[in-house]
Nucleic acid binder design. Sequence first.
DNA 1: TTGATGTTGTTATAAAATTAACATGCATGA
DNA 2: TCATGCATGTTAATTTTATAACAACATCAA
Lengths: 206, 206
Amino acid sequence: MDIPAAVSSRFPMYYEYVCLMEEQGSEWISSNMMASALGLTSSTIRQDIQYIGRIRSSSFGYSTNSFRLLLEAILGIAVGANMALVGVGSLGSAILRYQGFRAKGFIIKAVFDKRKDLIGSRVNKMEVYPVGRMAEMVKRKNITIGVITTPPDVAQSIADTMVSTQIRGIWNFAPMSLRVPSNVALENVSLCPSLFSLSFDMKNLK
Amino acid sequence: MDIPAAVSSRFPMYYEYVCLMEEQGSEWISSNMMASALGLTSSTIRQDIQYIGRIRSSSFGYSTNSFRLLLEAILGIAVGANMALVGVGSLGSAILRYQGFRAKGFIIKAVFDKRKDLIGSRVNKMEVYPVGRMAEMVKRKNITIGVITTPPDVAQSIADTMVSTQIRGIWNFAPMSLRVPSNVALENVSLCPSLFSLSFDMKNLK
DNA sequence: TTGATGTTGTTATAAAATTAACATGCATGA
DNA sequence: TCATGCATGTTAATTTTATAACAACATCAA
């Protein structure tokens, strides 16, 4: 079964909402509740759920627990991943301090930089290693996701290094479009685009 | 003219790429170059550009400068905005330290929190004010965008306070769906969804 | 000059995504 | 018991989005 991109892009939204409702003690949630909370239609949600699988349901709606477990399976949250972060600038160290994803099993296990003055120092209790030791550390710590928080001009070479290891997913924060082979997943993320979208909406929704 | 959501959602991508190319000295970029760099088709890009306006073009492609200026106008980057951040936890202070959007004219002018022990202290050289003083400060500093980096349970009440001021755009980092009137723009952003999307792709693209 | 190549702008076509509609079933309360 | 309301799951229709196709024009090299 091939899941359309428009559908899978909503899975994280569902996951966030279902976690919240389950934490608040709700045992059941209906497609209508979710629709109004998330700004979608119940029809869209019910169709999306057909791709997720057999969620336990009743005349009250879907079981929050069953829903969450299936989402965790399909999103790979059930197993989590070890991650390597490269580039300890302001953005990199901000992510190291924040780590809101750690509770879901996505753990930064190693930190790298090129700058000699940073190597050996500690950021958020983690030692900074030279980029040259990435291959070794990635193997030793069983890392599968690389986080790029470098300046844009070195991002591609870091990505190339990552691709040459066992890393199979790159979370790229550098404002730079990277080229990676098709057996490596790439997710570009940047705060600015969403701020600009907000700015656009403010101009047009008024 | 009404711009479809699928189109306007690509404007920030175009803007990022055009800025990069202009900085690198490129005077012209073609729809084909952009398409291969951004993973789109040239057809899509040419159609999107019809919504942006009359970009200066030649047989080499579009003028990077003209393209950038029109994008800045349509995205509201030309004027920028003053912002207020509420919630100086790990995420809030990470954003205060990072501020990659400052160069584009989006400037955090005031910082708020509820916790007594934080009020009056300084984070990244900015004094933390009590939430009760938000209305006053927003007016005084001509703030139009509110940034919510609080825990989810208080996010709605902060949003309500913001709505009661002259703030017309809310950049929400709390994992919580907020209700705001239609004359206020809302953009939800969170790092986890994009990490989960990456995890999903890793499972499925292999 | 002339042909080949590459560009935009526009129209037409195809594909994808969303929404609506409805059959069916289960609680609930009169 | 029986009607009512709300739920899912599924199919159909609609809307939106993306792609393809092509006319018109500019550049460059031979």
